[in-house]
Design a protein around this nucleic acid. Structure first.
Lengths: 174, 174
DNA sequence: AGTCCTGGTTGCTAATTAAAACCACATATC
DNA sequence: GATATGTGGTTTTAATTAGCAACCAGGACT
């Protein structure tokens, strides 16, 4: 199932999720799942990937708790694949990806689908990262920082380097 | 450079960006670039990946306009790799990924770094998708829809199926 | 009974990945 | 001036992976 980036030193908060998703196909499967697809054949036809690959990806996603494999709801003896809560948590990521795509991957005059608010029928707003007090934050306005270490936890995880260092910029940004 | 998911039927607004990014390593490189890393050796040491892989990924990212390769600013005759505007556009995606990771990939008591607003020193807000009028939107509240087709463009791209069909749910969600 | 559809698994081969060795250039050191 | 050392890669090579195709099994339809 792919060597992937495991053996990463830190397996930080970005690498870990990547490892769970698996690969691009998985992300497209998840997107299709958000779109209401549930059956093996639906995914396969829609994505056009080999069946063994699809089977492997679905297995992996199920193993990581992103998709749940449930008995088909229509009486057929097959499985349906539905997003778990964890899987549904990927919604912002997919939206971010899509918005980035809309921004940079289409000619100005090239027609492309866009995400609209179902109720109002209008395009959605752009995703924005905001501070607690509502300012929009860009890359320079944020830092990755270790949380304040409560004394009780200070000795619980001696192995990971996350404790004290790196409260500023630099490697091991997690 | 990986067969990837090219040969996808539609290369929709999600698949296209994925294709450009390349793979997980690339995303980690981008994350490190956001973190201020610029030199080949910095990336290599920080990520622990083979040099040829790093070189290939950097080439790919440069080719896709995500990273720019500029002469080093410190007088050395080497290159520095800095994010382009397009690359910086990936910030929300990385934040989404990180927040998802924070939600589902750490034990409740497991310490992990988190993203804080540099100025206030407080954790950032959660990314939320909102409608034009400010409602928070979940997966069910959105649809992927073709934009209204202006007559001039109606015949410009006969090949792509994006024209009329699929204004609702279903495949080819782009 | 035969055929088709769904939902996979199993082999196989070609293509990719990644580790390691190598190389060129520059700077620092003796 | 010769030698080590760090940077920024490329080439070589072995192992892994992807994806095609074939196969298989249960059910439905004819």
């Amino acid at each position: 199932m792919a060597k992937r980036i495991s053996h990463m030193h830190s397996m930080c908060g970005v690498a870990r999720p990547l490892d769970a998703i698996g690969d691009w196909w998985s992300l497209l499967i998840i997107r299709d799942a958000f779109d209401g697809l549930r059956r093996f054949g639906e995914f396969q036809r829609n994505l056009g990937l080999a069946k063994n690959i699809l089977a492997a990806r679905l297995r992996n996603l199920v193993a990581h708790g992103i998709i749940d494999s449930v008995p088909a709801s229509d009486g057929t003896p097959y499985q349906e694949y539905v997003l778990t809560e964890k899987g549904r948590g990927l919604f912002p990521l997919l939206v971010a990806l899509r918005q980035w795509g809309e921004d940079f991957f289409f000619e100005p005059d090239e027609a492309h689908v866009l995400l609209v608010d179902r109720k109002a029928g209008l395009p959605v707003r752009r995703l924005e990262l905001r501070s607690q007090d509502g300012r929009v934050l860009g890359p320079e306005d944020t830092v990755v920082r270790s949380p304040p270490v409560s004394p009780a936890k200070a000795r619980s995880k001696p192995g990971r380097s996350g404790g004290a260092r790196n409260s500023g910029r630099g490697p091991e940004s997690g």
